[in-house]
């Protein structure tokens, strides 16, 4: 199949080179790059990325679920359609334009900042929390999109069967509703983590390098902003990222499969 050949060349070769480069230092096999990528400023960046991604995933997961439940239980079909379409659009809204929209809103000379005089109260968008706020902008809609099908899949018969067996509303949620939804909810959270973890454009356009993130560090190293002889550290950092992202997928896929089976 031509597709497979294409992927092997265009995708496989860079990945092999990346792997090779990671374990090469001054022409010989070495784990020095990998070790270095897990130390000092690099480690801080990696942990920073994990920290912000985890925070965005949990917050986005919880808030997105509430929004999804509000929409699903609403009787207005148009509201539901509107929110779902908007979510589809917003979940794809990332990169540079997203950063600029927020800078224009809550940046140092942003419209809301100046209108409310937030500047005098020490407000700044260009830090960890500001970035979290911005990441949530595409993460919450993504969670809505993941969770709505699961909420729709909760059959009314289950609630009625539970009542019929003497269960209260709380007991229904505890023994049936929440367990049934858990794979979908966790699956969504894992996706959000992955999205925030690999985001680069928004962070670059917004905070430059004031918040330590692994994607920013890799970009720095690739654009030559690194000591001679340490170029391959970027490759090692990339490998670290792939390992983390791979773990995330390894968690996500089984959850997704189970959810699909239950909510068939």
């Amino acid at each position: 199949m031509p597709l497979l050949v294409f992927v092997v060349i265009v995708f496989g070769v860079p990945m092999l080179v990346l792997l090779g480069g990671t374990f090469t230092k001054e022409g010989a096999f070495s784990t020095a790059n990998l070790t270095e990528s897990l130390q000092g400023a690099y480690l801080t960046a990696l942990l920073g990325s994990v920290k912000i991604s985890a925070l965005v995933a949990v917050l986005g997961g919880v808030l997105g679920t509430f929004l999804a439940q509000a929409v699903v239980t609403s009787r207005f079909r148009t509201l539901r359609e509107a929110v779902l379409t908007a979510s589809g659009v917003l979940a794809n809204f990332g990169g540079v334009p997203l950063a600029f929209a927020w800078i224009a809103t809550l940046g140092n000379s942003g419209v809301v900042t100046t209108t409310l005089g937030l500047g005098q109260h020490g407000w700044s968008l260009y830090n960890f929390w500001g970035l979290t706020l911005v990441y949530l902008y595409f993460s919450i809609p993504l969670q809505v999109l993941t969770v709505v099908p699961a909420l729709d899949g909760l059959r009314p018969q289950w609630r009625e069967a539970a009542q019929n067996n003497g269960a209260s509303t709380w007991q229904f949620w505890r023994y049936v509703g929440i367990p049934v939804l858990t794979p979908a909810l966790l699956g969504g959270v894992v996706l959000l983590f992955g999205g925030a973890f690999s985001a680069y454009a928004t962070a670059q356009a917004m905070v430059g390098s004031t918040v330590p993130l692994v994607t920013l560090k890799i970009a720095d190293a690739l654009t030559g902003n690194v000591l001679i002889g340490h170029e391959n550290v970027a490759l090692a950092l990339s490998l670290d990222m792939i390992v983390v992202a791979g773990l995330v997928m390894a968690v996500y896929l089984p959850l997704q499969r189970r959810s699909a089976r239950w909510l068939r």
């Binding site: 059959r155 289950w158 069967a161 089976r261």
Partner: peptide
């Protein structure tokens, strides 16, 4: 019920 009323979990 008609169908699919067993708790899947």
């Amino acid at each position: 019920f008609q169908s699919y009323s067993l708790f899947p979990n």
